[in-house]
Design a protein around this nucleic acid. Structure first.
Lengths: 212, 212
DNA sequence: ACCTGAACACCGTTCAAGT
DNA sequence: ACCTGAACACCGTTCAAGT
C-alpha cells in the first residue's frame, strides 16, 4: 500500500511485465496514453493493452481505476514540485516568488491533461488515497516555506504562512484553470501580462495584509 | 442551436414529455441526478430513464453527452451569477466585494457537484458550446464591472479591470477547488478565516497594484 | 416531427482457472 | 504469486422503423 514500488527482481530484465514491475509500467503507460490521447483515452483496459497484459491484470496492482489515476496524479505532483524547486534555486525574494509562479504555470500549460487529472473529480477525495494526499500536502508545505522566507526577508507581512500559501496556490491554480478552459482568452490580456499582474497583486496584498 | 428552449406548446401540460419540452426536462433531470448521486451517475441513459423516455430520445435534443453537460454547466453559471448579484445589491466598496466573494464560495460549497461540472474537462473547450461560453464570459464581465466600481470609488488602483477580474475569479475558483478537494483542510485555517485573508490580500494587492 | 427497439463497440469489474 | 479467459452489467451512439 504505502510501500514504494517493489524493486525489480534480479535477473533477466526483458519480457519484463510477466515478472518485472508491472505496477510501474502501468503508471508509465497511463501517463503516455493520457498525454497522447487525452483523458477519455485513459481506460484501464487501454492501459493493460498498452502494457501487453490482459484486462484483468491491473487488478493485481490497483484496487480500481481510481487508484491508478491517483498514481498518475501523484507522479504529476512530484514533477510539479521538482520543477518549482529547480526554478527557485539561486533566486530570492520577489524574483523567487515569480520564478515559482512561472514554473507552476509552465508545468500546467505543458502538461494540461495531467494537470487536469491532478485536480480532477476522480481524485478529489484523497481520504482513501493517503499517498497522494501526502504528496499534494508536500507541495502546499513547499509554498508555505517560501512564504516564510519572504516574511523573514521582510517582503511580506506577518500573517499565517499557511493561509498565504493557500491563497497563493489558489491564485495560481485558478489562473491556470481559467486559462486552460479558455474562459479568459480573448477578453483578458495575454497570459504573461496576467501573470505579471497576479504576482504583483499577491506580493502587494501579502505585504500589506495584517492579521485580523 | 443558439435559440433558447422552445416554449411549450399551448394545450394539455400533463404527460409532457411526448409533446412538451423534453429538452428542458432532460436538463432538469440531469441536474437532479447530479445532485443526488454525483457525477458518475450523470449518464445519458440514466437521464433518459429519469425522464421516462427511451435511451435514444435525448439525441433528438442534444448532439451528444457533452452538449447535455454543457447545458447543465450553463444553468450553474446562471444561478451563480444571480446569487452574486443578489448578495451584492445594496452594498458597496469592500463590503460589496466580500459579499460577492462569499456568495461565490457559498454557491460552490452548496452545489459542489454542479460546480465541478461547470469547470470540468467535459466543457473545458467552449469553442463548440457558444451559449455556455457566452454565459461564463458574462460572469467574468460582471466581476470586471464590480472592479471598475471599486476603481471609481478610489478603493483600488488604476490597472486593467479585466486583468483584475481574472485575478479575482482565479483566486475564488482556486480557493474553492482546493477546499473541495480537501487539499487545504486540516493544515490550513478554517474556511471563513481563509476567505477573510484572501479578500484582504486581494483588496490590498489591487489597491497597490500599478500598471507595468 | 419526434420517439422506440435493437444493435454495435466499448467500459469497469469479478471470478474461476491456469502456470 | 501473478496472470488469463470468459462473463456480467453497464455505457455512448447509431439507425431503421414506428406513430
Amino acid at each position: 500500500m504505502s510501500k514504494p514500488t517493489k524493486a525489480a527482481r534480479k535477473g533477466r530484465p526483458s519480457r519484463a511485465y510477466h515478472h518485472g514491475d508491472l505496477k510501474a509500467a502501468l503508471v508509465t503507460h497511463a501517463i503516455e496514453l493520457l498525454r497522447a490521447e487525452g483523458l477519455e483515452a485513459l481506460t484501464l483496459r487501454g492501459v493493460a493493452r498498452a502494457a501487453g497484459v490482459s484486462q484483468a491484470a491491473p487488478y493485481r496492482h490497483f484496487a480500481d481505476k481510481r487508484e491508478l489515476i491517483g498514481a498518475v496524479a501523484e507522479d504529476g505532483f512530484r514533477r510539479l514540485q521538482a520543477s518549482m524547486i529547480e526554478r527557485m534555486s539561486g533566486k530570492e525574494g520577489r524574483t523567487g516568488f515569480k520564478g515559482v509562479a512561472l514554473a507552476y504555470i509552465d508545468f500546467a500549460l505543458q502538461n494540461p491533461a495531467e494537470y487536469r487529472v491532478m485536480f480532477g473529480p476522480e481524485v478529489a477525495n484523497t481520504e482513501d488515497l493517503p499517498s497522494l494526499r501526502g504528496t499534494s500536502r508536500s507541495v502546499l508545505g513547499f509554498v508555505a516555506q517560501g512564504i516564510e522566507q519572504l516574511q523573514q526577508a521582510g517582503l511580506i507581512g506577518p500573517g499565517n504562512p499557511m493561509s498565504m500559501a493557500v491563497a497563493t496556490w489558489a491564485m495560481l491554480h485558478g489562473l491556470v484553470m481559467l486559462w486552460l478552459d479558455g474562459a479568459a482568452q480573448g477578453v483578458a490580456p495575454p497570459l504573461p501580462e496576467l501573470v505579471d499582474e497576479v504576482t504583483r497583486i499577491m506580493m502587494f496584498g501579502m505585504a500589506g495584509s495584517r492579521p485580523a
